[in-house]
């Protein structure tokens, strides 16, 4: 099978009438890990949520193609079934639904009726992935994200990633709120997914995470679009020098979107 491609073309996204993403373009191939960095308020999380079909965001222009299929015409669940995954910055809590019941429903949703995963196989897989993420077994019987700490929620997002094995994952600030040990565990989980069948878009403020997951490409986002791209070394430079040099280089006064740019 040919390598998968996720292609974002000329994407424009509005929230409550104000445009957050403006002419965003990016192509990711199976096997690649891309990182999007940028200061707060530049549209990174909006991009992630909009691609997955978040109900609050309006896509006014552009396309997102997954192996030639138009993702934007799909319902949220169809996007997931097509192979997209979003590890959310603020995952919802669902009371009364155990992690394991939820996970099994999600796995079975992708399978044909009559071809559901066997309970034994499911338990073995979940046990193995939880071990890999150093999660206590009790998490499988806890209600989905209810009462989880910030770090536990992030691990649980990665657990879902490992269980569902999507073609493309978007990790939205998966590193925020993690201590260094947790960061390593989560990074190992993502690195285990690395294969020609898996592409990944990592959204982060900090270069820290990229010490553990080496990206193939790094993009800097400002004013709702990519303003600079490079390799892993770009992230290193951002860590050392911040974002000001980029703003200077490109003549950007205010990197945020949704605010009036200052008169030059």
């Amino acid at each position: 099978m040919a390598v998968s491609t996720l292609k974002i073309e000329n994407l424009h996204v509005e929230i409550d009438g104000s445009e957050i993403i403006k002419d965003f373009n990016l192509e990711i191939k199976g096997g690649e890990i891309h990182a999007i960095m940028g200061p707060n308020g530049t549209g990174k999380s909006t991009l992630a949520s909009a691609i997955m079909g978040h109900p609050r965001y309006d896509i006014t222009k552009g396309n997102v193609w997954l192996d030639g299929e138009n993702v934007l015409e799909m319902d949220v669940d169809e996007r997931a079934k097509a192979g997209l995954f979003l590890a959310m910055q603020y995952p919802s809590e669902i009371s009364g639904v155990t992690n394991s019941d939820f996970m099994r429903s999600a796995i079975n949703a992708k399978r044909e009726e009559g071809n559901e995963i066997s309970l034994m196989k499911f338990i073995r897989k979940m046990d193995a992935k939880m071990d890999a993420l150093e999660m206590d077994q009790s998490f499988s019987q806890r209600y989905l994200n209810e009462g989880f700490s910030g770090g536990e929620k992030k691990r649980n997002e990665i657990l879902q990633l490992l269980m569902l094995e999507p073609k493309f994952a978007i990790l939205d600030e998966i590193d925020s709120g993690l201590d260094i040990d947790a960061l390593k565990v989560v990074s190992n989980g993502v690195n285990d997914m690395r294969s020609p069948d898996f592409g990944c878009l990592i959204i982060t403020h900090y270069q820290r995470l990229l010490n553990y997951i080496t990206p193939d490409k790094v993009h800097v986002m400002m004013q709702g679009r990519i303003v600079k791209s490079g390799g892993a070394e770009l992230a290193q430079r951002l860590e050392e020098e911040g974002y000001d040099w980029i703003k200077e280089e490109l003549g950007i006064e205010n990197e945020k979107v949704g605010e009036k740019e200052q008169e030059a």
Binding site: M52, H54, D75, P91, I94, S95, G96, V97, F102, A109
Partner: peptide, 25 residues
């Protein structure tokens, strides 16, 4: 909650079902 569950591949009906059963659990 619906967005979250559906983003994992659950249909709208199935997501609603899980939420309601959880609510009455």
């Amino acid at each position: 909650q619906m967005f979250y569950l559906m983003s994992r591949g659950l249909s709208e009906t199935e997501a609603q079902r899980l939420i309601i059963h959880g609510f009455l659990a």
